[in-house]
Nucleic acid binder design. Structure first.
Lengths: 126, 126
DNA sequence: TCTTTTATGATACTGTATTATCATTATCAA
DNA sequence: TTGATAATGATAATACAGTATCATAAAAGA
């Protein structure tokens, strides 16, 4: 992965411009404007390459395939709309007293928060 | 699913006694004492039945199959040990000011927290 | 421009978790 | 105890995301 292809540019751009984490199929759709004929295999290949280059990072979600977002956003959490299934980025709002909730001898390395609900667009619709 | 079989009893008991969420294979292992010869298909069948009866509930995890725990424990979160991959139950420690972190028009229905780290048993080993 | 070689797109394949099938076993009401 | 039938265990089948394959297209250095 060292050549600068239009597909690679389109995929990177789609992830940068989305403002929220995208799944592989969402990346495919969002990139098709800039790269017509783009195939899903190329999306997976480039997601992997961009992860290795640390240009994007993975957002793991319970029970469904991961989404990907531009790297370097700092600590934040996510919101998943239960209607449209889109994932949004949430700023602020972190955990308070994790230490007290832990059993003795447990050590924390990281944590993640996922908020479920209905996004503004879907709430408006129905 | 209306008959009271030894397999069903063993599976329910394993989940009740575990004190932490178990995956399908963990349920199989934990139930074999009470139900020798138990098959994985029966485990899946009974997990589904117990879910429908709301005797157990599902704990969804990013990137791996769900665990199951006895229902009716009230709001709590989970800890996943990155060494042994067991999931533990965490009491207390909930989110503070979710409202402020939400974009305008978003509505929250629930949330989940997953803490990653090393459990006491694994920390002791190495 | 030419040549080398990487990247792409279509699709076959893989790995994994779960479900369906079916002959046999076990439950339980009569 | 018996008979109807639901549940089981073994395993084949499925679903799905992601990866490998390979002929073709397109970068980019010479």
């Amino acid at each position: 992965m060292q050549r600068d292809t239009s597909q690679r540019r389109a995929i990177r751009r789609a992830l940068e411009d989305a403002g929220r984490p995208l799944g592989a199929l969402e990346v495919l759709e969002a990139s098709k404007g800039d790269a017509p004929g783009l195939g899903i295999a190329t999306v997976y290949r480039n997601i992997k390459a961009l992860l290795e280059a640390e240009e994007i990072s993975e957002v793991a979600l319970p029970g469904e395939p991961p989404r990907y977002e531009a790297a370097g956003k700092g600590h934040h959490h996510h919101f998943r709309c239960e209607r449209c299934e889109k994932v949004y980025e949430l700023g602020g709002a972190c955990l308070p007293d994790l230490k007290n909730a832990l059993p003795r001898g447990f050590r924390v390395t990281s944590h993640e928060v996922l908020v479920h609900g209905v996004c503004a667009a879907c709430a408006k619709k129905r």
